[in-house]
Nucleic acid binder design. Structure first.
Lengths: 341, 341
DNA sequence: CTGAAAGCGCTTACAG
DNA sequence: CTGAAAGCGCTTACAG
């Protein structure tokens, strides 16, 4: 009855061995039954389940990770939490992953490739079951770390046609062009583009803006105001003021993100500029509050929740060893026309 | 030269044993040297460090967790990521914890005690090294899970004088009272309190509001408008409209959070109400954009970054087995007077 | 101050 | 379909 009592470090924890004993099977069978591995007699599965219930067994993720070199954690890397966009993305990811038994290890890169590389290194040591990363812009080392980890990885927010790459996103270029065309359709010709952060996706929107204006024969490089500073409402106010002080005859502004646009709208009000009569103002992402602005802000509703959800589902497939088809999902965005344009 | 090649599952990973061999010491000594345990000869430490460097050794957190029943993860539970307040808090926590070798496992409870309990259960299975939780309001089961885990735990955002409880926060009651007294000092007498979410900290601010008004003999329960809905700019606009339609003679509004206040300010503008002439408007937390509103919003700057930083440092002490003194830190807030009052 | 042995709680690989 | 043995990569507990 007594276990040899020397050199024990028992944590008092209920282990798989306890469950197996209680169920009258071997630990391996209990393990297989619990993981839903096929090839275990249904009656045994029931017995094991009942024993788990009775003993209140909780599997030890560390032991599982060590033995299988796979954990139930999924590393999710996003640039920033202060952009509501990524919060929506993470919420959606969590909504899919958590019920499936996975936990999101959230890493914030601050749009800094070196920081991303460091986080990746640290998270990879934890043997995550999968990886969710934002976009394609990273250091070569980071790329190799992902590659050589052999882990399932889904790229979010951007899309590519490259083979063997899994991604869920939308065309930032097209969305930028669509919004610009809306401004052109409203009769605007001197359309400025104001951006901050200057991350890859922002620059893709800039590319869409340029394309649309070139098509219309209205492109003027001087109408671009690009700042490397971090995007914020305050910066939007500052940039609008600067824009109007240094460029003539501007009749519309496309801000690369709604926080900038909201700040621009508030600055216009302080400057006594009538929107949209004197100046049309548009943003991007349809963030909280944009519909409440005076006047309500025209913007592009981007499908970040859908991206998070579809991306997480795709990763789940990959972690199960399945082949998601298509390997790259392009989701729709929508130009939301309100009274600011 | 050849290891017995049967039944190997080697992951190809560089292990502590490799490091030990390379350094010419035993694995235990290598382990101790790496963890900075005192009582290892300085020369040996150097040798081990060099070997780690040469081999590119990365410790395996799963193995470490299994052997020591402690991981390098810290579970951090916050109510919401869509409130910028908690994003600031998390950033600060990460800034302290990550360089110290810990990773934050971020859990979002959505102000739902059952959800918190579920997350706690799931995170506790991962043997975190410590716990960071928001406030004191949770299910009895959650409380016991924390208690019986025996893990170091620091409570954030609120304070208590209860013995044996570690916390870093500020007095929500006093901050609420201070802002209310500012409105009183401005000559306002019919001061409304508009709140959403109705979480414990919001209700503590309400308590401060009541106290200050009672002291001034101005308290009127009808001036409170409390909504259980989630706080947002849009809701603030709606609540201000409702408030003014159903209450007479209101000369000031204290919104329990800045997003509501920003919405209120925008609604006032649409309604043609002059702020602060007709109505003083104040918020709470000093969130992004509040200084950019028209007029700029009076609010309370809450020390969330400081709370996150001090809380994480306190946890670090506890995880080292030290006794932080004091066990409860009360940080200062600041009433920021702008043009809306 | 340093080390040989055992153990943490699982799963893999091999058998039957 | 089920299981006994070994191993995942560390650290604890005991010795010296």
């Amino acid at each position: 009855m007594n276990a040899p009592a020397r050199r024990r470090r028992s944590s008092g924890r209920v282990t798989l061995a306890d469950v197996a004993r209680e169920a009258g099977v071997s630990p391996i069978t209990a393990s297989r039954a619990l993981r839903g591995e096929r090839g275990v007699g249904p009656e045994l599965v029931d017995k094991v389940r009942a024993a788990v219930e009775r003993l209140g067994y909780v599997p030890d993720p560390a032991a599982r990770a060590l033995a299988s070199s796979r954990s139930t954690q999924v590393a999710v890397l996003v640039p920033l939490l202060s952009n509501a966009l990524f919060v929506d993305l993470l919420e959606a990811v969590h909504r899919v992953l958590f019920p499936a038994g996975y936990q999101a290890l959230i890493g914030v890169t601050h749009y800094n490739p070196d920081e991303e590389e460091q986080l990746l290194r640290s998270y990879l040591a934890h043997r995550p079951a999968g990886l969710l990363v934002t976009g394609f812009d990273r250091t070569e080392t980071a790329r190799q770390l992902i590659q050589s980890s052999g882990l399932p990885c889904v790229h979010l927010m951007e899309t590519t046609d490259a083979a063997g790459v899994y991604c869920v996103g939308f065309s930032q270029v097209e969305a930028g062009a669509a919004l610009t065309r809306h401004l052109l359709a409203r009769g605007r010709r001197r359309i400025a583009f104001v951006a901050a952060q200057l991350d890859p996706r922002t620059m893709q929107r800039a590319e869409g803006y340029r394309r649309a204006l070139r098509e219309a024969g209205c492109y003027d490089a001087k109408l671009e105001l690009l700042s490397p500073e971090r995007s914020s409402i305050a910066l939007g106010a500052r940039l609008l003021t600067e824009l109007l002080a240094t460029r003539d005859g501007i009749d519309a502004v496309f801000f690369c993100n709604d926080d900038l646009a909201q700040g621009g709208l508030l600055a216009a009000q302080r400057l006594g500029i009538r929107v949209p009569t004197d100046l049309a103002v548009a943003g991007f992402n349809d963030l909280a509050g944009s519909d409440q602005m005076v006047p309500p802000l025209t913007t592009v509703r981007t499908p970040r929740s859908e991206v998070g959800e579809a991306g997480a589902r795709m990763l789940l497939q990959l972690m199960r060893g399945e082949q998601p088809r298509p390997s790259c999902v392009r989701l729709p965005y929508e130009v939301v026309v309100r009274q600011s344009t």
